[in-house]
Amino acid sequence: MVHDSKIRVLIAKPGLDGHERGAHVVAYGLRDEGFEVIYTGLRQTPEQIVSAAIQEDVDVVGLSVLSGAHLSLTSKVMAGLRAKGADDVLVLVGGIIPEEDRKALQEQGVSGVFTAGSSIKDIAAFIRSRVRTGE
């Protein structure tokens, strides 16, 4: 039978941060790249994000953080995913991330950090190179 597989991506805004423009741009952009994008909306707790990632069985979680709390929020999401046995999910972080925090995020298990100026094409290519396509 023909596979009808799609890469599923959760775009989430954790914490107290009302700036969702960037998350919108990425969500629409990835849809146009052929992904199925699930958007959670603003002010999600790490628990809600983990739960959504599990229920939607996404391949990728993209966290958009502009509040400065990226290190603690991301580590909570990573821990939640691990606790649920979903540590094979690719986690990407975007937003305002100081250069010196990149390494810390990667040590937490984040696969890619895409700050302002990143192109959708690059993000899409990165996801495609890292995610199985069901074959």
């Binding site: 146009d32 052929g34 958007y39 959670t40 983990v50």
Partner: peptide, 27 residues
């Protein structure tokens, strides 16, 4: 593109992770 933007969860934020409600978005 064959892609989809599934935004129903935005309106379902009142449902907490602990409520046991299972939401699945489908394109």
């Amino acid at each position: 593109s064959g892609g989809a933007l599934l935004g129903d969860r935005v309106r379902m934020r009142g449902i907490s992770a602990a409520s046991g409600v299972f939401i699945r978005s489908m394109a």
